[in-house]
Simulated assay, not measured.
Amino acid sequence: MHLKRFTDFALRVLIYLSLHPGRTISINEVARAFDMSRNHLLKVINELVASEMIITYRGKTGGIQLARDPAEINVGMLVRRLEGEAPLINCSEPPCPIRPACTLNQALDEAQHAFFHQLDQYTLADLVGNKQQKLVNLLTNHVAGGAS
């Protein structure tokens, strides 16, 4: 299974915000930290707001913050929302002649179920875990290295 770039960016935004609890983060700061297009990031931000994962603040000191505690943000639920749970293959388009005897679709459905079940075991807090300072340092060094 391959996650869309949109989902990848959404997870990165949430991780970044969880590293800075209580701080309002500018969209430009997140874009610089991950070398993301600001325009693409705005689309991600809008979906995260609609999903009630983050809140936005307007104005000169505006930006974004997590709307919930990281321990309340389930990774599986978020990925389902952003990716959907459509079957991995469609045996009807075009109609597959071996469909009545083939178990590929069943195997892929089981694999997708296992994939989401595994993601359901994690929260945003789990992704950051006890590596918060290391993650902050990596991002800080990345941005500083890119600024030279």
Rank of each mutant, 00 (worst) to 15 (best):
M1E: 13
H2F: 11
D8W: 08
D8N: 13
D8E: 15
A10E: 05
L11Q: 07
R12F: 03
V13Q: 01
L14M: 14
I15A: 09
S18P: 03
L19C: 01
H20S: 03
R23M: 05
T24M: 04
V30I: 15
R32G: 01
R32P: 00
D35V: 11
S37Q: 05
H40W: 04
L41G: 04
K43V: 11
N46F: 01
E47M: 13
L48E: 06
M53R: 14
I55N: 07
K60V: 13
T61G: 09
G63F: 01
I64Y: 04
A67K: 13
A67F: 06
D69W: 03
E72W: 04
E72T: 05
L82N: 05
E83P: 07
G84N: 10
I89V: 15
N90I: 08
N90L: 07
E93H: 10
E93W: 06
P97F: 10
I98R: 08
P100N: 05
Q106A: 14
A107F: 11
D109N: 15
E110C: 07
H117V: 12
H117N: 12
H117E: 14
Q118T: 15
Q121A: 12
T123A: 08
L127M: 14
G129S: 06
N130S: 10
K131D: 06
Q132R: 13
Q133N: 08
Q133A: 06
N137G: 00
N141A: 09
N141R: 09
N141I: 01
H142Q: 10
G146F: 01
A147I: 05
A147E: 15
